Amino acid sequence: MGHSHGLSVEEQRKEDIKVGVKGFWILLLVTFAEVAIALFLKDLLPGLVVRLFMIALSLYKAYYIVSIFMHLGSEVGGMAATIVLPMALLIWAVIAFLWEGNYARTNRNAVMDARPGAETPAKETSKETSMRSIDDLPTQLSFQS
């Protein structure tokens, strides 16, 4: 784990094992708390409270793993930011793409079909999906140049 100056190799190994065992027990307790909340408290507490507890405990586990096992807890702020900020942008991008994809899926039939000869707006034939029936599809493909 961390390297302390002035310790022999055996002493450093023992310190590393202590940090690893402590991390194991902390992560085990937090995981048990998450499972207990999911199994036993989900009916007693409102759904939003349960979700907030689960998010908070998951973020704590992620922080602990990154700070202890990935050694970012002892790094300078700039180094930690080069790892944490791109991850935050990745999470934001996933949420944004899911949001936009859901919007496009729910409003798919309201969009005008720009192909020549296509119905406008697109005809919905099934209540389960917004896909058109196989009978409505053209039998031949034609590419206009």
Rank of each mutant, 00 (worst) to 15 (best):
A88D: 02
T120C: 07
R115Q: 06
A110R: 08
L59F: 13
V84T: 04
Y103N: 05
T120A: 13
K123N: 02
M70F: 14
Y60R: 10
S67Q: 14
G117S: 05
A114F: 11
Y63T: 02
E75T: 05
G78T: 09
S74G: 07
I55R: 03
M79H: 12
M79P: 01
A104H: 14
G78R: 14
S74R: 13
M79T: 15
M87K: 01
E119Y: 11
M54Y: 08
F69N: 05
L85E: 00
A80R: 06
V84W: 01
L59K: 09
T125W: 08
I65R: 04
W99H: 13
M112E: 10
L72I: 09
N107W: 11
A114K: 09
I68D: 04
E119Q: 12
V66C: 02
V50I: 14
W99F: 14
R108G: 07
A80V: 02
S74E: 15
F97E: 15
L59S: 10
M70V: 15
L59Y: 07
A114Q: 11
P86S: 02
I95V: 13
L89G: 03
T125S: 01
L98S: 06
Y63L: 07
F53A: 07
I91E: 02
M79I: 10
E75C: 07
T125I: 09
V50H: 01
M70Y: 13
T82C: 00
R51I: 08
L85V: 00
N109K: 12
A93K: 08
L90M: 04
T120S: 10
V111P: 00
G101P: 00
V50Y: 02
N102H: 12
M112A: 14
M87C: 06
I55D: 07
G101V: 09
A122L: 11
R105Y: 12
M79G: 03
A122R: 14
Y63H: 12
K61G: 05
Y64Q: 08
